[in-house]
Design a protein around this nucleic acid. Structure first.
Lengths: 114, 114
DNA sequence: TCATACTATGTCAGATCCGACATGATTGCA
DNA sequence: TGCAATCATGTCGGATCTGACATAGTATGA
């Protein structure tokens, strides 16, 4: 767990199929991906609460439908920066964000509908 | 608050001097920067707890001293991805991360010394 | 004063990510 | 069935970020 570069390269094209595919990931990678997915789920939830399509959301944050789709999938090609920016653009607070990140998977993030 | 691109460009060289320089930032930008700083502070705290120099930390995460300095300063040139990766590499948990993000400024993040 | 350790700042080439576009899959409705 | 709406996936040029390096500032001790 000493070389971050190696991980980054490897992570570029992760092969998530089943739920147990985190097996050959380091603890650090797993934490990062889980966090990314937590943010992605929050984004989907928020968008649904506002009844936006991916295209509508894309327009609001100055992006494209395809990128929004990737955001919501936790695609390796999207950064946390973009996820976080998008969430804040949707009116999510740091507190909500924190809750989503800290929550154990399975429990719903417990979002409020603004 | 409709165009994320505009903000990103503007944010590239923010001019933080005094504490009240967030004045011409949108709420979204402010949230993002505050979150970034929260992560940066957590990184410094964790590093100090482990008695690492910036150089030592840099080696452990496969980076350089200068980049660590920028990470800890919340420099506009570093991403949240790198911050989060570095924190996880230091053994921080998602729970700790969430606490740091959700905490109001002023209150210490309440980290544990591992 | 000098030397050593630590941190901050600027720069750059190469790596990565972005918005945009094309295209396919799926669903539901006429 | 045809059609419109929605979401997924691949690709690409350009924008952004990264590690590395050089260099400067600061503090401590000899």
């Amino acid at each position: 767990m000493k070389d971050l570069k190696r991980k980054k390269l490897k992570a570029r094209g992760w092969t998530i199929g089943s739920a147990a595919d985190f097996l050959d990931l380091t603890a650090e990678e797993a934490e990062y991906i889980q966090m990314k997915f937590a943010l992605a789920r929050l984004l989907v939830t928020k968008r649904h609460h506002k009844n936006y399509s991916q295209t509508e959301l894309a327009n609001r944050i100055g992006s494209s439908q395809s990128r929004v789709a990737k955001l919501e999938r936790g695609d390796p090609s999207v950064s946390m920066d973009l996820l976080v920016h998008s969430l804040f653009a949707l009116g999510v607070t740091r507190k909500e964000l924190a809750r989503a990140i800290g929550a154990r998977r399975g429990r719903r993030p417990e979002v409020s509908v603004e």
